[in-house]
Simulated scan of single mutants.
Amino acid sequence: MTAVGGHIEHARRYELAAAIGFAGQRARVYDGLVRLADVRAGDQVLDIGCGTGYLTRRAAMAAGPSGRVVGIDPSPDVVAYANEHAPTNTSFQLAGAERLPLGEATFDVVVTSLAIHHIPPADRGSAFAEMFRVLKPGGRLLVADFRPPRGRVLNHLIGALSGHAMQHNPIDELPALITSAGFDVAETGDRRPFLRFVRANRP
């Protein structure tokens, strides 16, 4: 797996690295993120920087057949992989977070996991403004990314998943970026084994 131009290439290698990195706990971790995002049956959900679509598919199960889940990512390889594995209530599109090809006030929930550190710093403000734009009033946002790793083994596993982008991980800047876009931050915290999250709402 490589990170090129701010996105992930080689989808199958990424999936293998993720399976190893989460040590068999990937479903538990991501289902926990879906619960934190409060995805409900019938919700319209957007997954930004969806990669191979793992979180998108977990959210699709919570949204159910009456819901709809859209994943976007700038990497053609992972979008192709995600579409090959898409449930019937899910679709994937090629796009960057800073310019979403989606209508205003369309989604009940926006989620993004392990993606913000791949967005160039100059584009992060625009990305959060776009998340605000596509959420309905009262909509929910959940952002999760790597917290600073402790120990050589964990650092190696996170590096395998994120490449050199972790050198510019904005984890401590997330609350300020999110509030600057107009959101109300509701909660921040850590999730084992190595994630930090911010949960927010659009007023």
Rank of each mutant, 00 (worst) to 15 (best):
V185R: 05
G159I: 00
L157H: 10
V185S: 07
L135M: 09
G163E: 11
A165T: 15
S180R: 13
D145V: 04
S180M: 03
A176W: 03
R191T: 13
V153D: 03
N169Y: 03
G189A: 05
L154W: 11
P137I: 14
R150Q: 15
L177S: 11
G182R: 03
T188H: 06
E173C: 02
D145L: 02
R191I: 13
F146W: 13
G151D: 08
Q167L: 13
R150C: 04
H164Q: 14
E187D: 13
G138Q: 10
A160F: 06
R150V: 15
S162I: 10
A186I: 04
D190N: 12
I158G: 00
V143T: 05
H156C: 00
R150E: 15
I178L: 00
G139M: 11
L177H: 05
I178P: 01
L141F: 08
A165D: 14
L157W: 15
R191N: 03
L161Y: 10
A144K: 06
D172F: 09
D145K: 06
G189F: 06
P170C: 05
V153F: 13
T179I: 00
N155S: 15
L154T: 14
D172H: 10
H164P: 10
R152G: 01
V143D: 03
P137Y: 02
A144Y: 06
